[in-house]
């Protein structure tokens, strides 16, 4: 792709000045291109939210450069924010207003005329499947509905970039799928999506390209398929053992494949062919309580890169 990036970060750093100064983002570089869905994958505390808050121009950049829509985040915050949609991690809906009023007043903060707002409100309530909730108090909505309303609110100014900080954390599977479907729709409509998540399935489902963050740094970048190919094997064999012979069995498996990860609850063997590895393990006299062959996922990429699993 040769188009100019919508977001461009160079040596981007965030230090919080408190009694104990803390550097949450340690000099990261990345680019987000027009129309793509770009993910930031990482465990809690990796620096994802700090990065998002800097891009949203609500948190000042400590050092490095951050250019968004061709403007400087440090100088043109107000003008950049006018063209962004932000879905924060915390629920920040205005509880003193009804569902519809939340959209209307938020639009007023952008200076959109009332007449245009009323029309857009109807469209957005329909888009977020909240048509019949307009006059209700925000507190009566379910978690999934509140998230959809927050997304609708973020779309009131027809943003070119939508920032989503852990959009489905805390939602049940059905609510997540409905949300993903809406996000796909937005992507189809040409909105550039930038989202953070610690769910690998979400990253695989939604993201064209992603970066993996760990302890304030970017440790890998690429498409989900790319990352899996580069940092993991094609298949994975997972073995579980009875507690009393666990250590013995783990010792026996050493060297069966090039890479073996010992996790608290299971043993993970990285292999090109899971079935033949399982056969090899059996031949060594290993008797697993459970064996499971699957294809590699981003979870394995994360494990390879950081030595930790994503959701702990």
């Amino acid at each position: 792709m040769t188009t100019a990036p919508l977001i461009e970060a160079r040596d981007l750093t965030k230090t919080y000045v408190t009694s104990e100064p803390y550097t949450a983002v340690k000099g990261i570089d990345f680019e987000v291109r027009p129309g793509e869905a770009f993910g930031v994958l990482g465990a809690n505390g990796a620096g994802k939210s700090s990065t998002m808050r800097m891009i949203a121009c609500v948190s000042p950049v400590t050092s490095g450069t951050l250019r968004i829509l061709g403007m400087d985040a440090a100088r043109d915050g107000e003008r950049i924010r006018a063209r962004l949609g932000v879905v924060p991690q915390d629920d920040t809906l205005d509880t003193e207003l009804t569902v519809r009023e939340n959209l209307l007043i938020y639009g007023r903060y952008f200076g959109i005329p009332w007449k245009a707002l009323r029309e857009r409100c109807d469209q957005l309530l329909a888009f977020s499947r909240l048509e019949d909730k307009g006059s209700q108090a925000v507190s009566t909505l379910s978690g999934g509905m509140r998230r959809r309303l927050t997304i609708a609110r973020a779309l009131i100014n027809q943003p070119e970039i939508l920032l989503l900080d852990e959009p489905t954390t805390g939602l049940d599977p059905q609510a997540r799928h409905l949300l993903w479907e809406r996000l796909f729709q937005l992507k189809e409509d040409g909105v550039t999506l930038l989202l953070t998540t610690h769910y690998m399935d979400e990253a695989e489902q939604l993201c064209d390209r992603l970066v993996v963050m760990d302890a304030g740094k970017i440790v890998a970048e690429g498409s989900p398929a790319d990352l899996i190919e580069r940092h993991s094997t094609r298949e994975v064999l997972e073995l579980r053992f009875a507690a009393h012979e666990r250590q013995l069995m783990i010792d026996k498996c050493a060297g069966v494949t090039e890479r073996v990860e010992v996790l608290p609850d299971r043993l993970v063997l990285y292999t090109g062919d899971g079935e033949s590895t399982l056969a090899a393990v059996h031949a060594l006299g290993v008797r697993p309580a459970g064996a499971f062959v699957r294809r590699s996922t981003l979870e394995d990429v994360f494990l390879t890169l950081t030595g930790r699993s994503l959701v702990e």
Binding site: A82, P88, D90, T92, L93, E96, F110, G111
Partner: peptide
């Protein structure tokens, strides 16, 4: 408690 202003400041409001 409500974080109302945090939401407002993600708009062009200063």
């Amino acid at each position: 408690t409500e974080k109302t202003y945090q939401a407002i400041l993600t708009t062009p409001m200063s």
